[in-house]
């Protein structure tokens, strides 16, 4: 039975201290406490269709190995985010290095868009989004996701990526510009994306649904 612990995110967190002493019970508590945020961050960095489970596992193994090096100079959550980002990017790199011998769609994306409702449309839009991100450099991809999706400020991102806040802002600027350029230059992607916002179809982002008559 897990002990319920308060969300006390600071360097003096007793759970962190106990983990640093090799206390595996404390490590289980740490896992319980942070697994949701790690899972979410990994999912957002890597996108759908990746082996989220394995990457989350890698993150916590790395946490166990490295927690002794955490000195409390930053918040534990910042340290954990940094480590999570690094592990996720490492897995992305490994994935991109593997030869892709088939044109099959990612596992979570059905080949035919017969879905219960507008989920297929959303998934396709998200897939295109991550395909665009895959064409960017890691640094730009990271700051874009942390800012636009995770909602972190440039200052917070600066702590995670270990760069000045001004550099983060610059990367954000170029990331946005590059993504827009990609959308304009890639007819296939642009066309696909255009379907989602063509006049007459519902605006997914506004929350309304595109329904089809049975």
């Amino acid at each position: 039975m897990m002990e319920i612990v308060a969300a006390n995110d600071n360097a003096g967190d007793p759970i962190v201290s106990r983990c640093q002493q090799g206390d595996k019970t404390a490590f289980r508590l740490l896992f319980e406490k942070h697994r949701a945020e790690v899972g979410r961050l990994v999912y957002r960095i890597m996108g759908p269709g990746n082996d989220l489970e394995d990457v989350v596992q890698d993150v916590f193994i790395q946490v166990y190995r490295s927690i002794g090096k955490f000195r409390g100079n930053s918040r534990f959550s910042t340290w954990l985010h940094r480590l999570t980002v690094n592990v996720a990017l490492m897995n992305l790199r490994a994935k991109h290095a593997r030869p892709n011998l088939s044109d099959e769609l990612p596992a979570n994306v059905p080949a035919s868009s017969v879905a219960p409702d507008d989920d297929a449309v959303r998934r396709e839009r998200v897939r295109v989004f991550y395909e665009l991100l895959d064409r960017m450099s890691e640094k730009k991809r990271t700051v874009f996701i942390l800012h636009e999706i995770e909602g972190l400020s440039p200052g917070e991102i600066a702590e995670i990526v270990g760069a000045p806040a001004l550099t983060v802002r610059t990367r954000l600027f170029y990331a946005r510009r590059e993504l827009i350029q990609l959308l304009r230059e890639q007819p296939a992607l642009a066309g696909l994306a255009d379907v989602m916002i063509r006049p007459g179809s519902a605006d997914l982002a506004s929350g309304s649904s595109r329904e089809t008559l049975p």
Binding site: G39, N108, R122, G151, L183, A193, I197, D203, A205
Partner: peptide, 24 residues
């Protein structure tokens, strides 16, 4: 595509609003 910047913003919001899949 009428406005790529708007498309990006909206898609980022969709991604942000989408909960990650439940893991075992």
């Amino acid at each position: 595509m009428n406005d790529p910047a708007k498309w990006l913003r909206e898609t980022a919001r969709i991604v942000a609003d989408t909960p990650p899949p439940e893991l075992p």
